[in-house]
Amino acid sequence: MDSFWDTVTTPRVLAAFRLTFGASALAALINTVFGLLVAWVLVRYSFPGRKIVDAMVDMPFALPTAVAGIALTAVYAPTGWIGAPLAKWGIQAAFAPLGVVIALTFIGLPFVVRTLQPVLEATEPDMEEAALTLGASRWQTVRRVVFPPLIPALLTGFALSFARAVGEYGSVAFISGNMPMRTEIAPLLIMTKLEQYDYAGATAIAVVMLVVSFAMLLTINLLQAWSRRWTGGK
């Protein structure tokens, strides 16, 4: 028990936990905001290529994480297509904590969109029509009538995206540069300890991550139950 606490409270492990959970939360937040926008655009508007865009959203599920990792690194490295302009502005993306956030955003991208889409598709226009007849502006209608029922689905999407990001290894291993204390994530630290045959150390870190995973699983189940109650059992 003592060695467990010693392992999980060393500065290097704590730094890895901070980065893993912090970057995952930030990535999930980015995905919540943009996922809402993407889902809205896909369900409510029509534009050429909408079906292809809709299918593309699932790409992070289909593309192996190692491929995503080297591709994102190539694009966001200081010499890359997007990394070079960013570097001119003094922003380092790959091989910095920002790179970790970028990889985790990619990985979690489909979750919010796919959780929101069915809810948005199921909304009936009568409420919006009623709001309009009662004199509400379109913006007021969206904010007060359309948005509130989406909250449970948004939270579920956030939680799913966060949970996926916390465990991610493949893509981050390439883009982060794996510098201890700076860009090293917890799953990578488990990997390092396993390679050094430090099974006790690896297990200790894994236990902390498992506890968080189960807490997330429980939260997601509760959120989904809440979401279903809100949308009337859909």
Partner: peptide
């Protein structure tokens, strides 16, 4: 929305 998807999905895949 398309810019976001382009930046995170299309550009890496093309690369």
């Amino acid at each position: 929305a398309l810019a976001f998807l382009g930046l995170f999905l299309v550009v890496p895949l093309l690369s």
